[in-house]
């Protein structure tokens, strides 16, 4: 097992290139050992997720950032898929979206989202938010579980 595989895999499902770039910048800046994969629409994301466990090179992610407004498959559909999947439901899903509508928040938690974060509009906000999220989930004990799933 090489060093690279011990890295944690973070999936980012985001259709806006700008947002994806910003998030990616802050993640790679702050965390060396996170392997970031970005999907720009729901379809591509689903294709990957469905193949985890079957294909050798598709591993279970350690954390998933999910935007609601993605084309092809909506964020809610992907969320439902994840949370009803036998293995994938163990992966924490963070809804990361511009919307702060009550309706969306309710539906997200109804569908089993692990957390719901609104994209910040302050300059410093983005980095802080990213760091808070990742640090929090680093504190969580689920790393070993994901590793064992990937063996």
């Amino acid at each position: 097992m090489s060093e690279k595989e011990v890295q944690r895999l973070l999936l980012l499902v985001e259709d806006d290139d700008d947002h994806a770039e910003i998030a990616g910048y802050y993640i790679t800046e702050n965390y060396r050992d996170i392997n970031l994969m970005r999907f720009s629409d729901g379809d591509i994301a689903m294709k990957y997720l469905e193949k985890i466990g079957e294909d050798e090179d598709k591993k279970y992610p350690w954390l998933i950032f999910l935007d609601l407004k993605v084309p092809k498959y909506s964020g809610f559909e992907i969320l439902s898929f994840l949370k009803s999947h036998r293995m994938l439901k163990r992966v924490p899903v963070v809804i990361f979206t511009t919307s702060s509508a009550n309706k969306d928040i309710t539906e997200a938690f109804d569908k089993g989202a692990n957390s719901y974060i609104s994209k910040p509009i302050e300059p410093e906000g983005f980095e802080t938010t990213i760091r808070q999220i990742v640090d929090y989930w680093q504190t969580n004990q689920h790393m070993h579980l994901i590793s064992s799933m990937n063996q």
Binding site: H19, I22, K69, T98, A101, I121, P123, G125, E127
Partner: peptide, 15 residues
């Protein structure tokens, strides 16, 4: 929702 998006982008890049 949709107006917020470009705002996030702007602020994000400013950061």
């Amino acid at each position: 929702h949709d107006l917020k998006s470009p705002l996030v982008t702007s602020m994000g890049f400013i950061g």
